[in-house]
Design a binder for these strands. Structure first.
Lengths: 240, 240, 240, 240
DNA sequence: CATGAATGAGAGTTCATTCAT
DNA sequence: AATGAATGAACTCTCATTCAT
C-alpha cells in the first residue's frame, strides 16, 4: 500500500474527507437532489444521463452544452432529464461526484525512504500530476464552470483550500524538524507552492492539449522541476 | 528613474512591446474593427460605450452582460452599439486595449541596489502585484472570458508566454552569473514561478474580494513571501 | 384514360419524374430537412404550419410574410416553427412539395384522335393551362421567390428545362414524321413556344387577377390561340 | 436612318411615347419627385447617386441594396440621399428614367426591302434583342422589382401593353393585307408572340449570364428562330 | 447643402422547461 | 417512467430615417 504518510503528510495523497480531520468539502455542491431512482430502469436511465453528460461536457464545454445534447447522447427523451435533475448544474454535480474517487485518491505508490522529505515530496507531486493528467478534461471543465457558476467556484475554492491546509501542515512539520525555511508562513508558502503545481498541471494537461506550441514538456521533467523548485523554495538541506 | 534593468531583466516591468525584443502580442485580439469615429461626437459616444462596457462587464461578468445593458449604461440607443462594435467580443477588446497601458507598465519605482538580484526581484514582484490589484476586476474578467472565447484564451496565452520568456531570460542570465541554480531549465522554472505569482495574485485580488475566508493576507506579506520563495527556488546565495 | 402519349409526346402532361426518362428535378429544393414528426400531434402541427404558410404566402407574398404571421395563422407558438423548419425557405419548399402532385399531373383527359397532332397539342395545352389556373397563386409565388432566392431560381429553371426538353422531343418526332417544320432547331423552338404558353398563363392567371385591364380573355380563346399559333409556328399541315 | 416603319409598324422600334399615338406610360412610376437641384454641386451629387444606384442595383439586386451602399458608392454621406430622393423606389425610378432613352429606341437600322414583312420583322426582332442584351442587367432588375413593388409591376405591365398593342396593330394590318392568318385575334396573337420574344430574351440575357448550362445560343440563331416562328405562326406566305 | 452619428422598431432564432399522452 | 412536441421569454442584429452640427 501507500507508505506511512503520517510521518510526512503531503499534498493530495488522500481523499479530502480525511484532510485535516475536518469535515471535508463534498466533491459536488449540495443541491436539492432529486429522489434517487427506485426502479432498475430508472437507475439505468440516470446512469446513462450522467455518462452522456460527462462526454458532452468534455467535448463541447459546459456552456455550449444544451440539455438536449445530453439527452440525445443518452438516447432518451428531453423530458426524462427532469426526472433526475433539476438543471444543468445538477448533472454536472453528479458527474463530478462520480469522478471524485479517482481524482482524490491519486494512489501515491511506494516510496523507498519515507523519511526522506524530498522523496516523499516527489512521489506526492508525481501522484498529483498523474491524477490531474488522467482527469484533465474534467479539471478543465471545472475551471470553466468555476468562472460561470458561483456554486462551483465556491466548491473549487474549498477543495483547493483543503489541499493547501494539508500541505501547510506538512510544511510546518518540516519547519519544526528544522528541515524547512522558517522564514515563511506555512500557509502562505503552501498557497504559493500548491498553486504553482496546479498551474503547471493546468497548462500542461488542459491547455497543452489544445495548443501545439505550448506542448507539455516531458512528464518526468515536469515532476522533477516542480519538486526541485518546491524543495529549494523551502530550503531542503543538502540538496545538490 | 528605474534602475538599469538590463542587468537583471525581470518580470513584467516593461510593456510587452519591449519584451524579448520581439513583436509583442497586442493587448486585445484584433478583429475586423469598424471605422473609428471621425467626429467629436462620435468619439464621445464610443468612449461612453467602452466605459460603460467595462463597468457592466466588471459588475455582471462577461456572459451575463447583455448588449442593451451596455447601451443603457452609456445612455444611447441599442443600435448605436453597432456603429462602433460588431459584437460583445469587440467591445471587450476595446476595453482591454484601453486598460493595457496601466496593466503593462507597472512602474517599478526606485531600487536601492540594482545589482542585488533579490532587491530587483522584490521590486518587480511588488510592481506586478500592485498592477494586478489595481486591475483586479479586469484580470478576473479576462480569466472568465478566456474560458469562454477561444480568441481571448489565445490572447491570454500569448501574453503569459511573453512574460514567461522574459523571466526565463532573467533566470538564464543569473544562472550564467552563477547566482541561480543551474539544475533547472530556465523556461520550465519561469513557467512555474511566474505561474506561482499570478495564481497568488488571482487568489488574493480576484477571489479574495468575493470570499471572506480566503481574504488576501497583508499585501507586504504577499510580496515578501513570493519573493522569498522565488529566490530560494533559484537558490539565490547568501540569504539568511 | 389518357391517350397513348408515346406517339405524340407533348407538354406537361405527366409528372416530371417521367420526363425524358431522366431523374426529374424535385419539386422543391431539398435543404437540411428536420426530422419528420413521429407523433400524430406533431404531424398535425406540421401540417397546420404548412397550410398556414401557403395561405399567408399567397396572401401577403413571400417577402412580406413574417414567421410569426405563419405561426399565428397556425395557432401555435413562434418557437414551434423551428421544430419543423429551419427558416422561411424551408416551409416554402414544403408548401411546394405538397402542391407538386396537382401541379405536375394536369390529367389531360381523353383525346378523340391520338394520332391527330393538333388535337393532342390542344388537349395538352388545355391541361397545362387548367393546372396553371388552379395553382395560379402558387405559380405567382414561385415567380416572386425565384427573383429573390437563388435556390428557387435554380429550381424553377430545372423544372422549366425538363418541360422544354420534353416538348423538344415531341417537336423532333413530328419533324421526323414530316409533320413539323424542319427549319428550326427543336430545342430552340421548344424554348420559344413553351415560353410563349407559360407567359400567357402567367399574364392571364397571375397578373390577370390583379389588374382590371389585362383581364384574362376567355379561357377557351386562350387555349385555341396558343394552340393555333404553336401549330402554325411548326407548320402543322392541312390546317384551314 | 430608320426605314419607313409606318408601312409595317412593328414591335418596339420606337419610343413608347409614340406608340399608338396614345399617351405613353412614363418610363418610371410617377412619384412625388423632389425639387430638382438648383446648384451645380447639387446636380453633381444627384447624378452621382443615380449612377451609383444603378451600379449597386445591378450588382446586388434591388432587395439586397441598402441605401448606404448607394451613398458609399457615390462617395457621399448617408443623409445626402434624402436631399434628392424619398426612398429606394425613387432612385430606382430615376435610374430607369435615365436608361429609358437607350432601352426604348433600339435603332432598327436599315432594312433592304421595307415592304417585305419578313425582313421588317426580322430587323425589328434583332433591334429588340440587341437593346435587351445591352440593358440586360437593368431588365433583370426590373423583373425583380416588379415582383416586389406594385408600382413597378404596374409600370412594367403598362410598358408591355404598349408594345403589345403596337404589335397587335401590325398584325391586324397584315391580316388586312391578306398576309397574316385571320384566324387569330390580333391582340391575343400579339400577346403570345411578343411574350415569346421577351421570354427568350430574358432567358438568354438575364438568366443566361448567371448559368453556364443554359447559355444563350448564338445570337443570330436566336433572332432567326423567333422570327421564323413568329412568321410561321401568322402564316406569312411563301416562306421556304 | 453635406455630413455621419443616433435612433428604435422589428425580425429571426434559441433553448430551458412544461405537460399531455 | 418515458416521451417529444409546445411554449414563449429573451437576445442579437439590421437598416431606413432623422437631425444636430
Amino acid at each position: 500500500m501507500v507508505s506511512d504518510s503520517s510521518k510526512v503528510p503531503w499534498m493530495e495523497t488522500t481523499g479530502p474527507e480525511e484532510i485535516d480531520g475536518e469535515q471535508a468539502p463534498p466533491m459536488a455542491p449540495r443541491s436539492q437532489l432529486r429522489e434517487p431512482p427506485t426502479t432498475k430502469r430508472g437507475a439505468r436511465t440516470r446512469a446513462a444521463l450522467v455518462q452522456a453528460a460527462r462526454k458532452v461536457f468534455e467535448r463541447d464545454g459546459y456552456l455550449d452544452t444544451r440539455l438536449t445534447d445530453i439527452t440525445k447522447e443518452a438516447r432518451c427523451a428531453a423530458g426524462s432529464f427532469y426526472t433526475y435533475f433539476a438543471n444543468k448544474e445538477e448533472v454536472l454535480a453528479a458527474v463530478l461526484l462520480e469522478a471524485q474517487e479517482d481524482m482524490m485518491h491519486p494512489g501515491m505508490g511506494r516510496v523507498q525512504d519515507a523519511d526522506d522529505p524530498y522523496a516523499v515530496l516527489e512521489a506526492s507531486n508525481r501522484a498529483y500530476l498523474e491524477a490531474y493528467r488522467r482527469n484533465a478534461k474534467l479539471m478543465g471543465l471545472l475551471e470553466q464552470v468555476a468562472q460561470v457558476e458561483p456554486e462551483f467556484r465556491e466548491f473549487r475554492s474549498r477543495r483547493a483550500d483543503a489541499f493547501i491546509r494539508r500541505n501547510a501542515r506538512g510544511i510546518a512539520e518540516l519547519q519544526a524538524r528544522g528541515v524547512a525555511d522558517r522564514g515563511v508562513d506555512p500557509m502562505m508558502a503552501s498557497r504559493a507552492l500548491s498553486g504553482m503545481v496546479s498551474v503547471m498541471a493546468y497548462n500542461a494537461f488542459v491547455l497543452g492539449e489544445r495548443q501545439e506550441g505550448g506542448t507539455p514538456a516531458d512528464f518526468e521533467e515536469l515532476v522533477s522541476t516542480v519538486t526541485r523548485l518546491w524543495a529549494n523554495a523551502l530550503r531542503f538541506p543538502g540538496h545538490r
